[in-house]
């Protein structure tokens, strides 16, 4: 296959949201692309060519290359992770494109995810949101036997479905408001469906929503673009669950003792 690529090249980290001046699209041509290559293997081939010519290869994040670490992710022809649904960039294969295709490749664009270089963005905002409360406050030690609290299978499955989020950021990139509601909702939903997680449900909802706002993610206006872009098909019901949890938490007074996040008293 013959493929033309237009790739965002940027050498320095963006400091402000107005990213358009920080880099530019550059056109490259590849003449021998195999349909069995993954999208990232196609970029590998490009990078080998660039290196041999003495040009800097295109920087992009990747690691597992099997759709589970959440490292990879770029906008391909304006779609997060490209044209296939339920698929990460590393799992996308060139057989999804036609011979002679022109493909536009850009990094995630969101105020909370500054571009670091080329296609690499800084998603540390996600980590900080998690640090604010997406956990159960148990220390390592000797908790009770794992089977002491039965969990209905349907609940465990719902928790699991939310917990499969890989933290890639496609939901944010796909959203015109750059909202992180699908990602954060997935954390809320994961813990909400487990009895162990319900103990701290109020403070978790409050803290996660506050952290999300503080990081500069936008609001949700129910466009559902996030669900369409999500490679793990996290359902938008998690957003509804988060909203309910937040309202529920607001009407209940925060107990004084839980003010310290994850207090380990």
């Amino acid at each position: 296959m013959r493929i033309s690529l237009h790739i965002w090249r940027q050498s320095k980290k963006s400091t402000k949201a107005n990213f358009k001046q920080d880099g530019k699209m550059v056109r490259y041509q590849l003449d021998h692309v195999s349909p069995d290559m993954s999208f990232l293997e196609m970029l590998d081939v490009l990078n080998e060519q660039l290196t041999k010519k003495g040009e800097e290869p295109v920087a992009f994040d990747h690691d597992c290359r099997e759709g589970v670490c959440g490292s990879c992710g770029v906008m391909i022809d304006g779609e997060a992770h490209g044209p296939e649904s339920g698929t990460t960039t590393c799992q996308l294969h060139m057989r999804s494109f036609r011979d002679g295709a022109e493909i536009w490749v850009e990094p995630w664009r969101a105020a909370a995810f500054p571009v670091v270089k080329d296609l690499v963005v800084d998603r540390s905002a996600f980590d900080r949101v998690v640090q604010s409360g997406a956990f159960i406050s148990v220390n390592t030690g000797a908790p009770q036997d794992a089977n002491a609290i039965p969990v209905p299978k349907a609940d465990a499955d719902r928790a699991f479905d939310a917990a499969t989020c890989i933290g890639c950021g496609a939901c944010v990139a796909a959203c015109k408001n750059a909202s992180a509601m699908l990602f954060v909702g997935a954390k809320v939903s994961h813990f909400l469906h487990l009895p162990q997680g319900r103990v701290e449900r109020e403070q978790r909802a409050r803290h996660l929503v506050a952290a999300m706002d503080q990081e500069g993610f936008g609001n949700c206006t129910n466009q559902n673009e996030c669900e369409a872009a999500c490679p793990k098909e996290i359902p938008v019901r998690v957003i509804a669950e988060m909203n309910r949890e937040f309202v529920r938490a607001k009407v209940r007074q925060e107990p004084v003792s839980s003010k310290r996040v994850g207090g380990d008293g």
Partner: peptide, 14 residues
């Protein structure tokens, strides 16, 4: 297994 369940790991259940 006890620790992981207490921390909210959604293992498969019957």
């Amino acid at each position: 297994i006890d620790q992981a369940v207490a921390a909210g790991v959604p293992f498969a259940r019957e």
